[in-house]
């Protein structure tokens, strides 16, 4: 299988006040196309930092990151913004929808950056909402939807521009078990049916079991355990 993303000797640290905190220590990793990868590890292990680097919303201090054939660690901030719009769909723990926009308008947001006509955008939005099972809730605002429905809208927003990579940061962290299972079903469906590559950070072992591969991070380093799930 082709690699969608490859990280080579990636080092990342943050400055907090006067202190410099090393977060990732020389991470090397390859993510194959169509893979559903779960990143696990304790708080502060560097999971989200690694996810941000793969998603191109942060930059490494050292090392190389190639995603979708682009050496994104070398891109300027402006280039990286354009690259994200084309290649990455983001799903957050707390959905991060625009509260005054309807579900349709929220899903449409990434398409506003394209040259699609209004009718084309609308058609794509309806398809995405249909895919996540919310075709009839397009006119509702986030406050009128349940947590699971809001996360479905967020998934539709992440998918609508047909990105290469879906990046999920604790997508079930704010949901009850039953709803979490539904969201994981949906992610699995997207992975299997549409062949989307998914990288998911989670604390939840049950959620991680849905992935095709699990990786554990601890203190900024990948542990040797690389579990190939049967799912």
């Amino acid at each position: 299988m082709d690699a969608v993303a490859s990280l080579k000797s990636v080092v990342k640290s943050y400055t907090r006040g006067a202190q410099r905190v090393a977060v990732l220590h020389g991470i090397s990793l390859t993510i194959d196309s169509g893979e559903f990868l779960a990143l696990m590890g304790p708080s502060g292990s560097g999971k989200t930092t690694l996810l941000n680097l793969v998603a191109g919303i942060d930059r490494p201090d050292e090392g190389e990151i190639v995603v979708a054939g682009e050496l994104i660690s070398n891109l300027s901030s402006r280039q990286l913004t354009g690259w994200r719009a084309h290649h990455v769909g983001l799903i957050f723990q707390f959905y991060n929808l625009m509260p005054l926009l309807t579900a349709e308008e929220n899903v449409e947001l990434p398409l506003l950056l394209t040259t699609l006509s209004k009718a084309q955008r609308r058609a794509r939005v309806r398809t995405a909402l249909h895919l996540v099972g919310l075709a009839d809730r397009g006119a509702h605002r986030p406050a009128e939807l349940s947590g699971g429905q809001q996360q479905r809208v967020a998934i539709a927003r992440a998918l609508v521009a047909d990105p290469t990579l879906l990046v999920c940061d604790e997508p079930t962290g704010d949901l009850d078990r039953e709803t979490a299972e539904q969201i994981l079903d949906l992610l699995q469906l997207v992975n299997r049916e549409q062949g989307k590559t998914i990288v998911m950070v989670t604390h939840d072992p049950k959620a991680a079991e849905r992935a095709s591969r699990q990786l554990r991070l601890d203190k900024g380093q990948l542990l040797d355990t690389d579990t190939e799930a049967a799912a």
């Binding site: 354009g82 994200r84 983001l90 990434p110 950056l113």
Partner: peptide, 14 residues
């Protein structure tokens, strides 16, 4: 601020 961060994350330029 979080909303603007999301907009930037999904590809809205500075």
């Amino acid at each position: 601020i979080p909303e603007f961060a999301v907009l930037k994350a999904i590809g809205f330029s500075d």
